[in-house]
């Protein structure tokens, strides 16, 4: 479970001065659910998710992940989190097996356990063929699978996706979406950020619309349709950000 309470993040930038990247964002995400964070570029999605993954310290507010405070017990939080973003890459000079072993060891898993989990993930994701080849020789699909396996090697309770389909072709994107649903089916707490309307429509149990660092609307797809009187997600999104945009 993820509980974000008034998460706020400001950056100091030499040129732009103080940037309010995220402001008072609160939400809850239950196990077995996918929470979708929908927002345009610069809306504050990555910053929010990085605070949940303890890569950033919140300027104000806090969050608990699997019952652990991100500000007080960051290392334990990370042990409960799998984080997959378009920006999280793999070590080019390691093989897929070495990659999984490395992240397994960093998570404190014993060697036997690492071997067993590598075997299982390779079965699930059909990775055996390239398990012992170096990542720099991989196709996009192979890299995708290896990244997914890397995210899951420590069997985290919470999985955070930050625009994972960014820059992927249709087939690779579908692999990711299938995998996200899989995580939900296995009772994981899943949070998924994107700027693609259709993805939240297809995927998410709860949708939060984020703009200018603020969470402007939240609810199930049905809730949002009823509230904004629109069926199309894009129309809902425009109305949601326009409503307070004027205020």
């Amino acid at each position: 479970m993820i509980v974000a309470q008034a998460l706020t993040k400001t950056f100091q930038d030499k040129k732009r001065g103080e940037i309010l990247a995220v402001q008072d964002v609160s939400f809850t995400c239950q196990p077995g659910q996918i929470y979708g964070l929908l927002g345009a570029n610069g809306a504050g999605k990555t910053t929010t998710l990085r605070m949940l993954a303890t890569l950033f310290k919140p300027t104000r507010g806090t969050a608990t992940v699997a019952g652990l405070s991100v500000t007080e017990r960051p290392a334990e939080v990370r042990a409960q989190v799998g984080f997959l973003a378009a920006s999280t890459a793999l070590y080019a000079r390691l093989t897929a097996r070495e990659t999984l072993a490395y992240f397994g060891r960093l998570n404190g898993l014993p060697p036997g356990e690492i071997a067993a989990r590598t075997q299982r993930l390779a079965d699930d994701l059909e990775m055996h063929e390239f398990l012992d080849r170096r990542v720099d020789k991989f196709s996009t699909g192979m890299k995708q699978k290896t990244s997914i396996a890397r995210t899951l090697i420590h069997d985290p309770a919470v999985i955070i996706f930050d625009e994972p389909t960014l820059g992927l072709d249709v087939m690779a994107a579908r692999t990711i979406l299938r995998f996200v649903r899989d995580c939900r089916a296995r009772g994981k707490t899943v949070i998924y950020s994107t700027h693609i309307m259709s993805e939240v429509e297809k995927l998410c149990d709860t949708i939060g619309i984020i703009h200018g660092g603020r969470l402007l609307a939240e609810g199930t797809l049905a809730d949002l349709r009823a509230r904004f009187g629109e069926t199309d997600m894009e129309e809902i999104f425009i109305k949601a950000i326009g409503a307070t945009g004027a205020a």
């Binding site: 890569l55 290392a75 334990e76 990370r78 920006s87 999280t88 890459a89 070590y91 080019a92 960093l106």
Partner: peptide
């Protein structure tokens, strides 16, 4: 290359 972020996501301090 984006691998630092991957590493920082792991529990290692």
């Amino acid at each position: 290359r984006g691998t630092l972020e991957t590493l920082l996501c792991s529990p290692v301090g």
